[in-house]
Design a protein around this nucleic acid. Structure first.
Lengths: 204, 204, 204, 204
DNA sequence: AATGAATGAGTATTCATTCAT
DNA sequence: AATGAATGAATACTCATTCAT
């Protein structure tokens, strides 16, 4: 009974199904956040039944990590290519290439990086780019620039840049567990802050 | 029969109860994450009944935001005091004071800042301080330092610093919506990267 | 220390407090339904503290039943007065007066009857088949039958029949919003009452 | 080893599950009231897990309305069949058939009508003044009036009047418990219906 | 009489995961 | 490989009622 022998087969190569599920998950995670997305929405989005999800992933965290790995690898590939295009001895060029390629990879992912590394608490989506600490720092930078203590084209940008940098280094697990490690950390932060503003660090 | 003349009154001033609830919530959020903490655990931790929670907060998000506000304000107070201790014209000192006071505030809070701005997905706790992109950048910085292209006391630190800085500026909502804004963003990131390594940016 | 000797006394005569609570409850029950109204809303509406409610009523069902009793009594009073105004032998007039007075009482209560009889399941399961209004009507029908004013095999049945009919037509949302619609409604009810007792309506 | 070739499949056709859930809900609503019945009790009663309820209904109000719709439709079907059995010009017979069929439908439902119309506040506020049974009765009255079988100034009003009257008398606890009481009740309802339309009841 | 902080039992609803087909 | 009905643990939130002051 070859009634529908050419009907589209319900079964697809695993690779393809997996990709479709990841695509659906990525879109939903971006749209409404990881926490707010249900497995059922992912399978509906991918056009398969609920149970099919578990044929390819073991949990929501599993897709998330697959997405993460894919994203990071893609950015890294871009960086490697860009940096590789520089002359061997052009270190400044390499550094510039690194920053640009990394930022480009992020921007192209349009928000994917947000949940790639961090969870997205809607209420705090702006927490690291807009808060009273950043405002305060921004003002300080602008004031100093006004007094020619340093130059700063865009104090707001530099403030976000520095605040996140600080937040990141301070947030490393296990950092500053001893008094001396802490002192060293603070010294390093300070030196980097000064450098960003074009000042030599005190020790040099 | 003054058996219990100082017997603990079941009812306390609202202020005090609220603080106890916040303290219990903070401890639990730190210990097991915001998501993993139950309202009931908070009230049990504060030694009150479940319903009492709702006499002071409307939801878990509500306590979280109260905690956040308190933390940020405390850090800001420390910064203001530190910066205020500098001579009016000592801009370098002010900047150094800012970085140190802010970092100190964070470190003293012992992890509180983590959920203050970001949600804490256990699996990704290290996402922003340890990943292949940071490793790659760290290596690049170390290599360049080895070739005297720049100096870097601690390439790993600088890599985390720069990676988070980049992540932060790139993650600003609405940034880089136009082509020119994007170009400008990339240029600014590059310039800041170069400065951190002690290089003049190309334009200067 | 007569600091505020003329300040309004917190305590009022029980009667008055009770009335205020009933008034608040009635308003809220009408506005948002019995089920949807909380004790706290009632006390807030009456301008007293939560605990005060329990000084006057034992539960929400208790106020409801007090409201019910008051409403039914008021309607009955109106009926008795109206019927009493008829000549002793004017049975048709008495029946017409009964229907009009009862309907008027209902309409004036503007929806109160809805929850007075309907919206309280267990306690009122018998509300529409056994109450003092039905008893009164039943008696009137029996008396009239005894005087051969009309025939009624089962006055109790007919009373329940008529009472429910009246309740139903009067309870139609939006009915009797204008004066003329109201007059027309009363006329129609009266005519139907007379017909049920086998009397020609006045107009015919 | 055909030990259980007819083993009960855990999964059943949706239709069947839905019916089982409705049956359990109906029984419980009747036994202890809508308000007092828990979703969990319904699922336990239907022999399924709690979550299964939400596969078929969105809330308790949802089952209630499904029950209501089913009940009303069943009564209407009975009425249509009964009325359809009358000769075209036998208006008195049609009206009598209507009252008897409707009352019978109600009595057979043994209390279901109570919560079908009464015990469900918001959505059913109009239940007793606007439903398909009333519409059907209204049409019958209008048609009969058009044929001069009786006079009716406002068929819609009379329909609401009669429907509520019938609903009330039928809803009396303990009524029609014996076959003869039931016959007597039906006879009385019919007689009152005829009287309202100005017809002499058959017996007289 | 009045207060209002505290209580905690009671329940609806969600959703990841399983498994028989 | 795929399905989707069924599961049931997990939890936030409400609100009537109490009681120490």
């Amino acid at each position: 009974m070859p009634e529908n022998s050419v009907s589209k087969p319900r079964t697809k190569p695993p690779e393809e199904r997996r990709d479709e599920l990841m695509a659906a998950a990525e879109r939903l995670f971006l749209e409404k956040g990881v926490e707010q997305t249900t497995i059922e929405e992912i399978t509906t989005g991918a056009g398969v039944a609920k149970g099919t999800f578990y044929l390819h992933f073991s949990s929501k965290a599993d897709v998330l990590q697959a997405l993460r790995a894919r994203f990071v690898q893609a950015v890294l590939d871009g960086i490697v290519a860009a940096v590789g295009g520089c002359r061997e001895e052009d270190w400044r060029g390499k550094l510039a290439a690194w920053s640009t390629a990394c930022a480009t990879g992020y921007l192209d992912a349009a928000g994917l990086h947000h949940f790639a590394f961090v969870a997205a608490p809607p209420a705090t989506r702006e927490g690291l780019s807009r808060n009273i600490l950043i405002d305060h720092l921004s003002e300080l930078i602008a004031d100093g620039a006004g007094e020619n203590a340093w130059s700063a084209d865009d104090p707001g940008f530099t403030a976000v840049f520095l605040f996140n940098a600080l937040h990141g280094v301070v947030n490393q697990p296990g950092i500053a567990e001893t008094t001396s490690a802490r002192a060293e950390l603070l010294r390093a932060i300070e030196a980097h802050f000064l450098r960003v503003l074009g000042l030599r660090s005190g020790i040099d």
